[in-house]
Design a protein around this nucleic acid. Structure first.
Lengths: 169, 169
DNA sequence: AGTTTTATATCATGCCTCTATATAGGCAGG
DNA sequence: CCTGCCTATATAGAGGCATGATATAAAACT
């Protein structure tokens, strides 16, 4: 419908190119991993805990599929988390093969703690910027959030049912 | 990097708060780690290769300090990278203790390949958005880039000389 | 010359993931 | 019922990636 914009020409007033967006995201990934990462548990561990927190008790295989790791990896991860008291495992009375994994209060507390830590560090970083820069970031974030939410949603969907051409290198 | 559901609709005319910016950056970071990460080599390995590419041959201890890992970790990492042909080690004629690590052509090619892969995946993701959303994201990225560059710069500086209150949880 | 500092290597350990394979419960067909 | 298949989870073995403690050798400093 409203595709009046898409011309082939690219002058200095043109919108950011795809490469530009890619560059920004790469820098952000770098920033995130370098300055926002806790080293207490792994990324997959934290992501799994978050999922258990949001979605409730789940099967091992479901978790493995959602997190994009193999089932044995998830078994080991859950064993470690259980050893740390962050999750518990309950047998499913309806199916003797199934183990349901649930987050514990300690697990929730760890999530909250990590979240606080990240937000605090981010606040420290933002505080190093001039008010104008802070304002610019805030405005850009507001403008981008709706589109970005959809992007994240699509990314999650794409992961659940990957298209044939997208092989992770 | 777990993000809980944004509860409560946000007043669309209110300015973005620091928490809002933090939230958005966290989500963005999550997306980047989750959907833009290659699993061929580790983050530290990729980051080290990138540094060697940008800054030329370096000492082991300098690399370890810059990447925030211990010297033995860097020694092992460099050994692996050398085994893979991505870096070479040269003795420093001026100092018999020193080993200078340099990236090889294969290393540069790997970096370029990873970059292409990320950009391609990002292009796939962006293509799932409406033209309006793509436009909104591109504009926001362009507007945020200068401030974000300074944020990254400050973050790197903060890492080199950490302030007393910022302990990684 | 002797001590200390610097640069790197080695060792033992633990996390995290993989592939391949094993066990065990559930479900059908005969 | 029991044989065979599918599904859910566990185990074994291997490798990458990080750690702390310690060793070795070269340089620097008394």
């Amino acid at each position: 419908m409203e595709y009046t914009q898409q011309s082939g020409a690219r002058d200095s007033d043109a919108p950011a190119t795809r490469e530009e967006v890619a560059e920004a995201l790469e820098q952000l990934a770098f920033l995130a991993v370098r300055h926002l990462t806790n080293r207490d548990i792994s990324f997959t561990a934290a992501s799994t805990l978050g999922r258990l927190s949001r979605e409730g008790p789940s099967r091992l295989t479901a978790l493995a599929a959602d997190e994009g790791v193999t089932q044995p990896s998830m078994t080991q991860l859950i064993q470690r988390l259980e050893r740390q008291g962050l999750v518990t495992r309950v047998d499913d009375p309806h199916d003797g093969r199934v183990v349901l994994v649930a987050i514990t209060d300690a697990g929730r507390e760890l999530l909250a703690e990590r979240r606080r830590g990240r937000t605090d560090r981010l606040a420290e970083l933002l505080a190093t910027l001039s008010p104008e820069d802070q304002q610019a970031l805030a405005t850009a974030v507001r403008a981008a959030t709706p589109a970005f939410q959809r992007l994240v949603e699509n990314a999650a969907r794409a992961r659940r049912s990957p298209s044939p051409g997208s092989t992770a290198s």
